[in-house]
Amino acid sequence: MAHDKLAVLIDADNARPAIVEGLLAEIAKIGTAHVKRIYGDWTKPDLNSWKDALLRHSIQPIQQFRYTVGKNATDSAMIIDAMDLLYSGRFDGFCIVSSDSDFTRLASRIRESGLTVYGFGERKTPEPFRTACDKFIYTEVLAPATATEVSAGVKRRTAKELRSDSQLMNLLRNAIDAAADDNGWAGLGAVGSIVNKQSPDFDPRNYGYARLSALVNGIGLFETEERHIGNGKHMYLRLRSGKK
């Protein structure tokens, strides 16, 4: 996946320039951004804060005038460009940066064509858009890290807080059950893959942990062990006996 050719499309009205460095670093983990475009009405002063970031990171601004009050012409321009890029056949995936549910159908349409869709948006992003993506990453986790936190935008959850999060615990338990062998052990990689398929917006960083292994250890309800397979080490886990 590291060699995927990606088209990055940013909705300037629904994203903040402070996330750009973290965003592009995240995108670099999954592929190469062959196209980087950002859409907005650049004649308006409220987008001035973007200009330094665009120059620094070679992001191409696309001008879209607001023809009618209350109508978002930016969304239409992004969608039209995305379809043109899709039909070009030059890309393996798209990164859609917005907290706007108007891009839900676009994400679904791109996936129908067999390409991967990565969504990036704030926690307020409506669920339909989040679940329409193969993977959705909250932009709060892209804020620069501090000495004590994985991200300046997310506070680390305690073991008690993690255990009381029924949605998180059910996701992990169900994934472990699905990936487990006869002794109840499941590979961490398989667990992570199942969780991401069930919940595209799952990310250990949402809870203040850099990796899934750290999140699992932070919960404190799972047995873990490292196994040497081939030339590498792989983590396995299972629910501790008597823990439900």
Rank of each mutant, 00 (worst) to 15 (best):
R56K: 15
F136D: 04
R90L: 15
M78Q: 05
D182P: 00
E122L: 06
A107E: 03
E127L: 14
D46P: 05
A186I: 03
A132G: 06
L171D: 04
E127P: 03
E140L: 08
N170S: 15
D177R: 12
N170H: 11
D92W: 06
R163P: 07
T158Y: 07
A145P: 05
D100K: 00
P128Y: 01
I137A: 09
M83V: 09
R109I: 07
T158L: 08
N72H: 05
A77P: 02
L55M: 14
G89I: 01
G93L: 07
K44R: 14
I79G: 06
S113M: 12
M83Q: 06
R156Y: 02
T131A: 10
S166F: 10
R111H: 11
M169R: 02
P126E: 08
F120H: 04
A180F: 07
D181I: 12
D52M: 13
A179Q: 09
I79P: 06
I79W: 02
Y87E: 00
S113F: 14
N174P: 01
E112V: 00
L168N: 05
F65L: 13
T116Q: 11
R66K: 14
E149C: 11
L142Y: 10
R130S: 09
V97R: 03
F120K: 06
N174Q: 14
A73S: 15
L47N: 04
I137W: 01
A147F: 14
V141H: 03
K51G: 08
L171V: 02
F103R: 04
S58A: 15
R157D: 10
F91A: 02
T139H: 09
D100C: 07
S58F: 07
S164G: 00
I80F: 10
R123L: 09
E112P: 04
R56C: 12
R173H: 08
P126Y: 05
V150G: 03
A152F: 00
T116A: 05
G119V: 01
P128L: 04
K135E: 14
T116F: 13
C95I: 00
V154Y: 04
R111A: 15
T116E: 10
Y138T: 14
W185T: 08
F65K: 07
I96K: 07
D52P: 04
G184D: 02
A159R: 01
T68N: 12
V141W: 09
